[in-house]
Amino acid sequence: MTSVLGEGARPHERIARLPDDQRARLVRRLRGRTDGAGDTDRWFVRHPSTEAPRLRLFCFPYAGGGGSAFREWSGCLPAGVELWAAQLPGRESRVAEPALRRMDPLVEALYEAVLPRLELPYAFFGHSMGALVAFELTRLLRRRGAPLPTRLLLGAFRAPQLPNPHIRIHHLPDEVLKTVLRKEGTPRQVLESDELMRALLPTLRADLELCDTYQHREEQPLAVPLSVFGGHQDVRVGRGDLDSWRTQTAKTFRLVMLPGSHFFLHSSQDLLLAELSRELGPTPRTTEGEGRHD
């Protein structure tokens, strides 16, 4: 499993490397494409396993991201693990649909979409905003008496009971929001492209609003093993923010720190996939403790 992505090499950065004419064509294609990486329906892109599936891994992307964030994971997971990447409204094949701005309507819609696919054992992975979505979807499944995931795998988001230490930015004017994005590593070529910004900002702003307006409700810890992943250089989410997730599970808890900043799922993709493979293999790891990659 060799990653071709460098530190912080997100889809926005790959777009930035394209010549101007190719970037313009990409924006036009985004308005009507399907992902092309696997069987697609409205809410999930399915990447079939090369063997009969024994477990489904549902993956939920970060703010502004789509199902393509997990495209390179196909074929890198243990045999029998079938990858299903969430495709939320407002991006990629669903770019014409308005993105949802509140957590409850989003998880209600995801509940209806995922429920028919739970005849096999399954796990959830979510990164940043996706971690919060995966957590709240699991709690909704429990309230409705549905089968629960065999484990939760969450990355780069503070424990949900903690207060948000950051200022709310979803309402900021475009130019101010661009300044914030520039500080977080969005390439200059993307920020200076009016066409790209018109395509990307509405969905990103909606996702930021979803996170900014999230309100945690106290419930009993989940009877699901929980593994949480963080980046050593993440200035937004620290080790303490991640360790506080342990109160949300009545089962085993693991905290794994990987090299990289907030988007270590790209920059340390190989290490993360190795950890996920250990979790999702035929005999998943259940030991409580902390894994480290220094």
Rank of each mutant, 00 (worst) to 15 (best):
residue 144 R to K: 15
residue 184 E to T: 07
residue 88 L to G: 06
residue 194 D to R: 13
residue 236 R to D: 05
residue 278 R to P: 09
residue 173 P to K: 08
residue 247 T to W: 08
residue 68 S to N: 12
residue 239 R to Q: 12
residue 209 E to H: 09
residue 143 R to F: 00
residue 202 P to A: 13
residue 175 E to C: 07
residue 194 D to P: 09
residue 205 R to V: 13
residue 285 R to F: 00
residue 251 K to F: 00
residue 277 S to G: 13
residue 129 M to K: 03
residue 2 T to V: 14
residue 68 S to A: 09
residue 166 H to Q: 07
residue 234 D to R: 06
residue 83 L to G: 10
residue 103 M to W: 01
residue 39 D to H: 09
residue 85 A to W: 12
residue 240 G to E: 15
residue 21 D to L: 03
residue 260 G to K: 01
residue 179 T to H: 06
residue 10 R to Q: 13
residue 72 E to M: 02
residue 39 D to T: 13
residue 235 V to E: 15
residue 261 S to H: 08
residue 291 G to A: 13
residue 96 A to I: 05
residue 103 M to P: 10
residue 202 P to L: 13
residue 82 E to W: 08
residue 74 S to Y: 01
residue 219 E to F: 00
residue 75 G to V: 06
residue 12 H to D: 13
residue 91 R to L: 09
residue 35 D to Y: 03
residue 157 F to R: 11
residue 132 L to N: 12
residue 71 R to K: 08
residue 110 L to W: 01
residue 137 L to Y: 03
residue 69 A to C: 14
residue 36 G to S: 06
residue 210 L to C: 03
residue 128 S to L: 01
residue 219 E to T: 14
residue 174 D to L: 10
residue 198 R to Q: 15
residue 141 L to C: 14
residue 125 F to G: 05
residue 15 I to L: 13
residue 27 V to R: 05
residue 232 H to W: 10
residue 26 L to V: 04
residue 112 E to Y: 01
residue 24 A to G: 03
residue 93 S to P: 15
residue 33 R to Q: 14
residue 109 A to K: 03
residue 199 A to P: 12
residue 200 L to I: 14
residue 195 E to H: 02
residue 227 S to G: 05
residue 229 F to W: 04
residue 64 G to Y: 02
residue 198 R to F: 00
residue 39 D to E: 15
residue 209 E to V: 05
residue 168 R to F: 00
residue 279 E to R: 10
residue 96 A to L: 12
residue 234 D to I: 02
residue 157 F to K: 05
residue 140 L to Y: 02
residue 248 Q to V: 03
residue 262 H to T: 02
residue 265 L to C: 05
residue 216 H to D: 07
residue 36 G to E: 09
residue 102 R to F: 00
residue 123 A to R: 12
residue 16 A to Q: 12
residue 107 V to K: 01
residue 10 R to L: 07
residue 18 L to Q: 11
residue 246 R to F: 01
residue 79 A to Y: 06
residue 155 G to W: 00
residue 53 P to Q: 14
residue 142 R to D: 13
residue 117 R to Q: 11
residue 149 P to G: 05
